[in-house]
Design a protein around this nucleic acid. Structure first.
Length: 287
DNA sequence: CCCCAGTCCTGCGGGC
DNA sequence: TGCCCGCAGGACTGGG
């Protein structure tokens, strides 16, 4: 389930395609239901083949390859999507292959950006600047979790009466956090996941902000989390290792690593699993 | 506007 | 051995 650290790792993994020219677009017709492609393969091919990639970026949980025309290819992995350089885990779930010529290299190497997706909930779209402003703009997506300031964070959340864990998943408020990192961040911030946003005080927003920067940066350093199903991979089809450093996620019944007294609990919030330590993360905090 | 349940989609593991 | 069901949780949709 790629979240900010996994998507940032994918972005970094394909970053050196900047300067390359797109020579071909393949949309294989596999056995599984096709993913969302916009526009259709023929129009997309017309729009991107022959164009140079001028930058590779990230917005929340999406990877962007921006072309010299100003158009951008937007990869949205959702649950099981991967943005790879060559080497997909298997052929049957390759959804899009973008062939490149590294024209800036004397050797003229060829390679491909591959969008691979087992479950097929992800999408690949090419949007012009107007479409990008509409789909990625501030009214659709909140600020990136690695860019937001403490004051902006508290202002955007404090008026909500939702539980903080649920609110953190709202990409319109804040972009990049998903189910796994929401639990990890709240644990480090020592905030109970069921606390209403409106009950969090200034000190709490400060801790949450610091924990968010800390956990996301740490997770990027370990190239993200490859969970038990082994789906998530970096651009070279290698596993991340942050799963070895999780503090609470999928650690129900484990002893808490910080207080050594509490037992990690799993609860369900908005039909999603949340993990926390009931001793470190009290509903009523620090009287 | 705000919030929640339902939906999409595939692969895996449990129960019988 | 095979089948069905539930579960995983990204983002979107419809309804209260």
């Amino acid at each position: 389930m790629p979240e900010l650290p996994e998507v940032e790792t994918m972005r970094r993994g394909i970053a050196h395609v900047v300067g390359s020219v797109i020579t071909e677009l393949h949309v294989p017709q596999g056995t599984c239901k096709p993913i969302r492609i916009q526009p259709d393969a023929r129009k997309m091919r017309r729009q991107i083949v022959g164009q140079t990639i001028t930058s590779v970026g990230r917005r929340g949980k999406r990877v962007l390859a921006v072309l010299a025309t100003g158009d951008a290819i937007i990869f949205e992995p959702r649950m099981t999507g991967l943005v790879l350089l060559n080497a997909p885990p298997d052929e049957e779930h390759v959804r899009v292959a973008i062939h490149l010529r590294h024209s800036h290299l004397a050797t003229s190497l060829e390679s491909q950006i591959i969008f691979w997706d087992r479950r097929g909930l992800g999408s690949v779209r090419v949007l012009d600047p107007e479409g990008q402003a509409k789909e990625l703009g501030p009214h659709r997506l909140g600020p990136d979790a690695l860019d937001i300031s403490v004051s902006d964070l508290s202002q955007r959340f404090a008026t909500s009466r939702s539980p903080i864990k649920v609110a953190l998943l709202d990409q319109g408020r804040l972009a990049g956090i998903g189910n796994l990192y929401a639990s990890e961040i709240l644990f480090v911030a020592q905030i109970h996941p069921a606390v209403s946003c409106s009950d969090i005080k200034a000190a709490g927003w400060k801790r949450l902000h610091a924990a968010m920067q800390f956990v996301l940066t740490e997770a990027i350093r370990y190239e993200g989390s490859t969970l038990g199903d082994g789906t998530y991979r970096n651009a070279l089809n290698q596993q991340g290792s942050y799963q070895n450093h999780h503090r609470v996620y999928q650690k129900s019944e484990n002893q808490c690593l910080v207080c050594r007294r509490g037992t990690v609990r799993r609860i369900t919030q908005s039909q999603r699993s949340t993990f926390f330590c009931p001793i470190c993360q009290r509903l009523r905090k620090r009287a």
